[in-house]
Computed example of a mutant assay.
Amino acid sequence: MKLKKFFAGVLAAAMMLTVGATAAFATTPEYTTTPDNVDLGIMKNYKVEKGTAPKEDFTFSVTYKADKSKPYGTYTQPEASKSKTASFDSNMDAKVDAHQASLGIKISDFELPAGPGKYCFEIKENVPTNKTPGVTYDETTRYLVITVAHNDDYTGYVYYAQLFDDSYTPGTSIKNGQSAGVKVLGNNAFTNTYTANNVVISKDIKGSLSDLAAKFNFKVKLTVADTKNANQYVGAKVVHSDDTAVTVGTVWSISAKDSEDGWYDVKLGRNDQLELENLPEGVIVTVKETDGNEYTVSQNPSDISSKNANTSYAKIGTFTENTATVNATVGAVNGSIGFVNTKEGTPDMGVVLDNAPYIAMLAIVAIGGVALMLNKRRRDEE
């Protein structure tokens, strides 16, 4: 009997401990009141995967959705809340975590009427027609749902805010107001990504009569992609150079299509490379060899291994033989532009002499040898 009482006591203690632990480690209630004059923390993430993204302002439209709302009385959205901006005021380098900026949305922006109700606002990014090169824009729809309720002593109102994805469906009424849809964290509301690629320019020298120590002069120009403007680019950074006159870390500008300027000089020898990073897809790279007339100039037919990254880059561009020029468009992967100078020929083999006197001398020696042998045989026979 005593043993049964002991186990009953242990069981009761365990149950009390379980209940206590549940209360102690319970999460914060999902619905918490939000002051109407503070930033709701709805963020724009800017994920820079490769290269350096340009500074930019991303704008958003905020639109009241009457068909998804249960307002108190008549409600009309104020003009001031119809547009919001997330600003990135400086160029951004690639990093693991996203750069962030707030849309700056507050409940007070909407001037909600005094009375309990539920208000739904659609938030969408205004994707520009002429997108920034290298940027993938977030074209999803978010719904911000704000519920207004009386406070505990009925002297004012409290606010509840929740962000949903585009599957949001409102409840049938204020009383039965539980909505359907996937909830979205404010710090993960919208995400844009930026990426750019590298291009390596290389030189090789071949041929039995070539000067393997020679250096050849090149001109390089970077031009904007179709429909783009030069001010939409940060520029390309030199990340490797075997030409000591070209400083690693230097940023080369990307010129407008009609610009006569923007040419950069570089000198490359056998197995030398110049590598540029932060070239978004669509940028045109023009490389022209300006000397080496004694050589046959061609484009390297193979992919090239980068000295900087120790990886192979895919061959890009079209070679024009009469101008020794490659025109290449940057693609979705790292690219390589390789030049090969070849010098072959027939070497001089020395002085060429007339062989007839030597042949005659050899014939006389041979005849003399035969005569001696015959004379010796005749004496032996006598």
Rank of each mutant, 00 (worst) to 15 (best):
K228D: 10
K228L: 08
A230M: 08
A230R: 03
A230Y: 07
N231Y: 07
Q232A: 07
Q232V: 02
Q232D: 15
Q232M: 11
V234M: 06
V234K: 12
A236I: 08
V238H: 04
V239T: 13
H240R: 07
H240V: 03
S241P: 00
S241I: 04
S241F: 04
D243T: 09
D243N: 11
D243V: 06
D243A: 01
D243R: 03
T244L: 02
V246A: 10
V246D: 03
V246T: 15
T247D: 12
T247F: 05
T247C: 05
V248L: 02
V248N: 06
V248Y: 08
V248E: 15
T250V: 09
V251I: 14
V251S: 09
S253M: 10
I254T: 01
S255D: 04
A256F: 00
A256C: 02
K257Q: 08
K257E: 06
D258R: 05
S259F: 09
S259M: 11
S259V: 04
E260V: 14
E260P: 01
D261N: 15
D261L: 12
G262I: 15
G262D: 04
W263E: 15
W263S: 13
W263R: 10
W263A: 07
W263N: 03
W263P: 10
W263C: 08
Y264S: 11
D265E: 15
D265Y: 15
D265H: 15
D265C: 14
V266Y: 06
V266L: 07
V266A: 03
K267G: 04
L268F: 07
N271F: 13
N271K: 14
D272V: 00
Q273R: 00
Q273I: 00
L274H: 01
L274N: 04
L274Y: 06
E275A: 00
L276V: 00
L276M: 00
E277I: 00
E277S: 15
E277W: 01
L279D: 06
L279N: 06
L279C: 04
P280A: 02
E281H: 03
E281P: 00
G282A: 06
G282S: 06
V283T: 12
I284C: 12
I284G: 09
V285P: 09
V285G: 14
V285Q: 07
V287E: 07
V287Q: 02
K288M: 15
K288E: 08
K288S: 13
E289V: 13
E289C: 11
E289A: 11
T290Y: 05
T290V: 08
T290M: 14
G292H: 04
G292Y: 11
N293W: 07
N293S: 12
E294N: 06
E294M: 09
Y295L: 04
Y295H: 02
Y295Q: 01
T296K: 10
T296D: 14
V297F: 11
V297W: 05
V297Y: 03
S298D: 11
S298M: 11
Q299P: 05
P301T: 07
P301Q: 08
P301G: 07
S302V: 12
S302Q: 12
D303L: 07
D303Q: 05
I304S: 08
I304R: 06
I304G: 09
I304D: 05
S305H: 11
S306L: 12
S306Y: 04
S306M: 08
K307A: 11
N308F: 10
A309V: 02
N310Q: 10
N310F: 02
N310A: 12
T311E: 02
T311I: 05
T311S: 10
T311W: 00
Y313Q: 01
A314L: 10
A314R: 06
K315M: 12
K315C: 01
